[in-house]
Structure formats: structure tokens, C-alpha cells
Simulated scan of single mutants.
Amino acid sequence: MSEINKGRLYGVSLGPGDPGLITRRAFELLQRTDAHWSYPVRKKGADGFALQIALDAGLALPAEHTPLVFPMTHDAEILAGYWLRAAESVLTRLREDKDVLFLAEGDVSTYSTFIHLARTVRALEPGIVVEAVAGVPSFNAAAARLEMPLADTDETVAIIPAGYGIGLIERLLDDFDTLVLLKVKPLLDDVLDLLERRGLLPYAAFVEKAGTPAERAEHDVARLRGEKVNYLSLLLVKNPERLRGEMRRGCRKMKW
């Protein structure tokens, strides 16, 4: 009995929002007429941010496409049900020997919905081939916008969601030259309080919706206190102790 052919699942990274940051590899895949698009949405009937990036690039939504619902919750039991339903939907196409392109903002290897989708698909059907297409993460786009190097020579970088908590953020500030805090909206004021207490406000910068027409960059982060910022927002923080040490040695000068 011959083995049934199955399609391939692609995680297609689209960058943070600027269509110009879509890689050539991703753009070529999205021009295929024989593949099925799937993309994440927060609730049924909502628009998908990743899909909008593709549309802004001039790509047409194919006839065969499926929005996959991934709600804004940290409840593992609730999410498990949505992961399973999404994976089963994707597998329906893959078992028809149809390639599936899962559209994702940023890069699919960094805190991406695609990680969970691919893991669940493989758990249900171990023989499925999965390919991740690399992209530009939001923190790289933000660093470029701010003209702020993330790391130079022997400097170290930590990248975490701010939701990991103030305690962890404070510990990491002691150990890394640059700290990238993703999705800062829920804890923004608490983070600002920490940075003020540590004397780090002058060494921090904020970017919201990096790479989109609605992008906002703020060097005076104290002005953000009490504001309702977008979910797609981040803070970049430099370690002043390492910075001052480098300046004393005269090794290099930072823009800040």
C-alpha cells in the first residue's frame, strides 16, 4: 500500500508591519496559487494583523484561506482547545496534499503562535513536514527606528515578555547590557516605576506598532505613565553600569 502524500506546513514570517520588511522568500511563497493561507485572529470575525501585512504588500487573499482563532488569554486549558482545533483545521488541508502557509507577524521562531500550531500538528501527525521562514522581529525594527544598537562586541541581550513580572525584569537588569521587554502594555506603569527607582529612565526607549504607519517612538518614557498603549509595544533598556564602564575606557560612544 503506497503512502498518501501530504502537504507541507510553512510558518511564513512577515515582519513587524512594514510590507518592505517581508523577505523575498516569504513573498515568493505568498505568490503561490496552489497553497492554502491560514492566519491568526483574536476572535471569530476579527481582522488578522498578519493578514493585513500581506494585503498591504499588494498580495491578494486567495480563495482558499482560513482564519484560526487564538484568544487573548493565558489560561492553558482554554488555549489547548484552540490549538487543537487550529491544528485539526490545518491538517484537513495537509492531508489533501495541500501546502498550508501560516502567516505570522514578526518572526515565527520568537514568541510566535506558529510554534504552538506546529507542535500540535506534529503531535497529531508526526510525519508532517514543517518549514519555518525567518523574518524581522519587532525588536530589530524598533532598534533600527531608535538608532539604538542592541549589542556591540561582547555585550549581552535578554528578550522577554514584560508579563514575566517585575521581579524577573529587575534581576535581568543586573545581568544584561540590553533588555528588550515585549508586550509591555499590562505592566507599563510598574515597569516605569522600576526604571525610575533604578535610575534607568534616561536609558530606556519605547516603540509601539513598529514598522506600521501608526508607529510611535518615545525616548522620554516617563511621559507614558498612565497611558493606554497598544498591545504591540515594547521597551528597550540599556544597562548604565556597563555603558559607563565602556565610556570610561573610551572604547566606543553610544548615540545615547
Rank of each mutant, 00 (worst) to 15 (best):
S2W: 07
S2I: 15
R8T: 10
L9I: 02
G11R: 02
G11Q: 00
G15I: 04
G15V: 04
P16A: 03
P16F: 01
G20E: 15
G20C: 06
G20V: 09
G20R: 03
L21E: 00
L21I: 11
I22S: 00
R24A: 08
R24Q: 11
A26W: 02
F27N: 04
E28H: 00
L29S: 02
Q31C: 06
Q31M: 12
D34M: 03
H36I: 01
W37S: 01
P40K: 11
P40L: 14
R42I: 13
K43S: 13
K44C: 06
G45M: 01
G45H: 12
G45S: 11
A46C: 12
D47I: 00
F49T: 08
F49Y: 15
I53V: 14
L55E: 01
G58H: 13
L59D: 00
L61I: 06
L61R: 08
P62Y: 02
P67G: 04
L68R: 00
P71H: 11
D75V: 08
E77T: 13
E77G: 08
L79K: 09
L79Q: 14
G81P: 07
W83H: 15
L84T: 09
L84P: 05
L84N: 10
R85I: 06
A87S: 13
L91W: 03
L91S: 02
E96F: 09
E96V: 00
K98G: 05
L103T: 00
L103H: 00
A104Q: 05
G106R: 06
D107S: 12
V108K: 00
V108Y: 03
V108H: 01
S109P: 06
T110E: 11
T110Q: 14
Y111R: 04
S112I: 06
S112W: 01
S112G: 15
T113M: 05
I115S: 11
A118M: 02
A118H: 03
V121E: 01
V121Y: 06
I128M: 00
I128K: 04
I128N: 08
I128P: 00
V130N: 02
V130L: 02
V133M: 05
S138Y: 05
N140L: 09
A144S: 15
A144F: 03
L146M: 12
E147T: 10
M148G: 07
L150Y: 13
T153A: 15
T156W: 12
I159P: 07
I160N: 03
P161L: 13
G163E: 14
G163I: 05
G163C: 04
G165N: 07
L168G: 07
L172I: 08
L172V: 10
D175Y: 07
D175R: 15
F176R: 13
L179H: 01
L179R: 08
V184T: 12
L195Y: 12
G199T: 07
A204Y: 04
A204S: 14
F206S: 11
E208N: 09
E208L: 06
K209D: 08
T212D: 07
A214L: 12
E215R: 13
A217Y: 02
D220C: 14
R223T: 10
L224A: 11
L224W: 05
R225F: 02
G226N: 04
G226S: 09
E227G: 07
K228P: 09
S233H: 05
L236T: 11
L236C: 08
V237S: 05
V237W: 10
V237N: 01
V237G: 05
P240M: 06
E241G: 03
E241Q: 14
G245I: 04
R248F: 12
R249I: 02
R252F: 10
M254A: 14
W256L: 08
